[in-house]
Amino acid sequence: MINESLFIIVVAQAVTAAVPLVLAGVGELTAQRAGILNVGIEGLLLTGCIGGFVAATISGNGMIGVGVAMLAAMALASLFAWATVMMRADQMVTGMAINLLAVGGSGTAWMLAQAHGYAHMPVEAGFTRGIVPWISPETQQWLSSWPIIGPIIFDQYGLTIVVGLFTLAVWWLLRRTRAGIIIQAIGENPDSCAMVGIHVRQWRCGLIMVAGACAGLAGAYLSLMRTHGFSPLMSGGMGFIILALVIFARWQVGGLIAVCLGFGLVDATQSLLQGSGMNQVVPYQLFQALPFIVAFSALLIFRRGQHGPATLGQVWPSTIK
């Protein structure tokens, strides 16, 4: 009985950990399908963290924090879109520059917030657990007490359901709609798409912005829901892990969910082990490195010869007439 409930706790924690990965991952995956490799996703996450934190702390309203987080990340994403899609700058290096910008910008904003007395978030501005916002505590408690699916699905932050529905919608979009076909065609052969009258640049810019909003929201999840605070560099490489997971999922939405949940399980297990006194035996740095070791192993398991979208990360159009 003990083991069973422990298992459920670990799975529930895995879901909590997987939510931001899935959210930012789905945005990145869709953009990559259209040939955009945004290495700046780490910076976009960090921007979401600080934007959400600062806005929620100043306004005292979590929803405003969420909105500002998305807008701030979209603003940074628009810089990436302008540089790479409109000005044909290298996606890789621009992405790293976006990361530098986000590190500097978030550090500056954090210093200023501290200097002006906004270092701590008011309690009411952060989100508590609740499957939808404004749910009554009784309903939430009743739902969470359901066996098995209670803790796993209902005892989560409000974003979980939103992410679930959003992911389903993206899966359907890519699989079943004309827009999905266009997105994939743009990633495979933008020249042909342009020839039949598809606005390649508009599509790519749009997808970068959507991916930016997703990453910003995921960042807000980290600062407003999971931790109720900000610390410098709090995204801690999650964006890079997402890039690895997208590859490991072979650019499939279903695969991405599975991979993120699996990754969440590893994460939950390691925090369980760390909490149960294992850190007396094993250095804590090993636990810190574990996500990255897992992600690196995932890259190794990835089968050779399985390439992603044909024009992923390439400059388009390749020549200017």
């Binding site: 790293m96 990361n99 910008l101």
Partner: peptide, 16 residues
């Protein structure tokens, strides 16, 4: 940290 901001902007400006 403003120094990092300068670095990021410089790189994008050079690329573009």
């Amino acid at each position: 940290d403003m120094g990092d901001v300068v670095q990021g902007v410089v790189v994008i400006a050079v690329l573009v």
